[in-house]
Design a protein around this nucleic acid. Structure first.
Length: 555
DNA sequence: GCCGTTTTCGGCCCGACTGTTTTCAGTCG
């Protein structure tokens, strides 16, 4: 089995963490972490490039040394330098390093001065009181570490976009109800529409910070208040989500919003850009550079721009980069920002289920719901025969279903109801219905549901066969991945895109927040090449049509 | 370890908060 991007990236991430614990140069640590990110963000299989190191070093942040290690890993299944590190650093320390509040310096001290090599060792040292004798270890710090250990044991890690957004919107409503906020904005990875988020960031412009932070730190369901300063408060909710509130003055709201929207890597690019123009960018604004080290806002220096994001990007001679593009993937070199799809642009839902298979709504209910949301077209695409868990339709049932859909289409005005099916792509790429049956449909969405652990080459052949099928319009959730639970297929995405263009087949962005499939990096490949992309919600219920927003953010 | 429109060497973003300290180190985002 050839190494997946995730697998190779994991090696570099591990290397970065181990280097950190050994006290290596922070820039070297950072370089390794960046290599991991770059590999993770590739739509192509990095292992396929390993025959040619110059192709590897063209990737951002990958130099000769990392390229050699990638080749070594692909060819031998391990990296000697990592093995050497692993023989020196106890593996359990990596989990200790991941605990919130514990960084490399503290982990080093724990290891060297208290022989702590794992979370279990750490617990024992807390319980027997020996931790107190270490430098900079007071009772409060120890209490926080104990809490972190408990939290890590119960936390599921990063949270899906669709789980975090409703929580953030609820908090925004709560803060708005104080009447003390001039502006409230959701920032961070949530604003960027990332498929998973680490925490929720909320920014507020207010003249009455105490009222807002009091409301914030007394929300229902707070498990722990992590910080409560005059400009920053952090809480952790019972469901394990951390929420940060920042209070930002009006005059620097744009700078703050940019800063806290990130991404971190995008911010670094902007600051470097600022420096090269004789400027200095921080969360308070874009300032003229000075000789002084002190923050410019404290020296009474007037910013060049600070109140709005537009003004700051303009002063950096950049177009206003939309939040979903702030990923340090080349967006700061664009002359012109492409026009992004908005939810209001979408007039058709081409993938939805009814009670005929595993949906909750009847054909008519689905059509009326879609119509009420302003759609002009809805396609009814219930599951095909092989989809047993999805209550898939036998050919006979499908024929009857087709008649019913046609009938409801006659009955309901103001929206066109298309007859469709979500047809399984079988493991070898054949479809689950005969062509004579497919010919009777207006829309054929072909999706993989089983055999989702296939080798990349097998998966590519399978999906290509479906793309090339003359009766297929859309490939539904092409990889079949489930965020946080199933990796899904890793086909050669550029090859799929090329074939999709040739055969006029659309690739789907399935907007269900568990899927977001195609994922963002794949969409980039598809849209750069000019491939048709369908943003569908795969609705099984009325509320699922709300997922459209997540699909649009991914596009 | 990576990188280059003054560079192949010498840089590599910036500030808030906490806790342990008597002036600051460590962590986080």
């Amino acid at each position: 089995m050839s190494a997946s991007n995730r697998e190779i990236a994991d090696q570099f991430e591990r290397m970065a963490a181990m280097l950190q614990i050994t006290g290596a140069n922070a820039f070297k640590v950072n370089a390794n972490a960046k290599v991991a990110r770059t590999i993770r963000d590739q739509a192509i299989q990095v292992a396929d490039l390993a025959a040619d190191t110059s192709a590897l070093t063209e990737l951002d942040g990958i130099g000769a040394s990392s390229a050699r290690k990638i080749v070594e890993y692909v060819q031998t299944g391990s990296i000697q330098e990592l093995k050497d590190l692993e023989s020196r650093v106890p593996p359990g320390l990596l989990q200790v390093l991941e605990l919130p509040g514990l960084g490399p310096k503290t982990v080093q001290v724990l290891w060297e001065q208290a022989s702590i090599e794992s979370i279990d060792d750490l617990k024992k040292a807390i319980d027997d009181g020996s931790l107190l004798s270490l430098p900079r270890m007071g009772q409060k710090t120890i209490d926080n570490i104990r809490d972190s250990i408990e939290f890590a044991a119960s936390s599921a890690g990063r949270i899906r976009l669709g789980d975090a957004m409703p929580v953030a919107e609820w908090i925004v409503d709560e803060l708005a109800s104080t009447g003390a906020c001039r502006t409230i904005e959701i920032a961070g990875s949530l604003r960027r529409g990332q498929e998973t988020i680490g925490d929720i960031d909320i920014l507020v412009d207010t003249d009455e910070p105490a009222i807002v932070s009091d409301r914030f730190t007394s929300l229902d369901g707070i498990q722990k208040i992590l910080a409560a300063g005059s400009t920053k408060c952090s809480i952790r909710l019972e469901e394990g989500i951390q929420v940060d509130l920042r209070i930002i003055p009006t005059e620097s709201f744009g700078a703050g919003l940019m800063y806290f929207t990130g991404s971190k890597e995008h911010n670094v690019l902007l600051r470097e850009l600022a420096i090269s123009s004789g400027l200095r960018l921080n969360e308070y604004g874009l300032f003229p550079a000075t000789e002084e080290d002190a923050p410019p806002q404290e020296l009474g220096i007037e910013p060049v721009a600070s109140g709005s994001e537009e003004a700051i990007y303009e002063a950096l001679e950049l177009p206003l980069i939309p939040p979903t593009m702030r990923l340090a993937r080349g967006e700061t070199s664009l002359q012109k920002i492409p026009e992004l799809v908005r939810t209001s642009d979408i007039k058709s839902e081409l993938h939805a289920h009814t009670t005929a298979s595993d949906g909750r709504l009847s054909i008519k209910e689905l059509a009326l719901e879609a119509k009420s949301r302003g759609y002009k077209v809805i396609a009814v695409t219930d599951h095909s025969v092989s989809s047993v868990p999805g209550n898939g339709l036998s050919p006979e049932r499908l024929l009857k279903h087709i008649e019913e859909i046609r009938h409801v289409d006659q009955e309901v005005d103001g929206i066109r109801i298309l007859v469709g099916s979500e047809v399984d792509i079988l493991s070898d790429g054949r479809l689950d219905y005969e062509d004579e049956l497919l010919e009777q449909l207006d829309v054929v969405v072909a999706s993989p549901h089983v055999a989702l652990r296939q080798e990349p080459k097998v998966a590519t052949r399978r999906l290509l066969r479906a793309i090339e099928h003359p009766l297929v319009h859309i490939i539904g959730h092409p990889t079949g991945r489930l965020i946080n639970s199933r990796e899904g297929l890793s086909p050669d995405m550029p090859a799929l895109v090329e074939a999709a263009i040739e055969h006029d087949t659309a690739l789907e962005i399935n907007a269900n927040p568990h899927r977001l499939d195609l994922r963002d990096i794949h969409v980039r490949v598809a849209s750069d090449a000019g491939c048709l992309v369908a943003i569908n919600t795969d609705a099984h219920d009325a509320s699922h049509l709300d997922y459209l927003e997540y699909g649009v953010m991914t596009s």
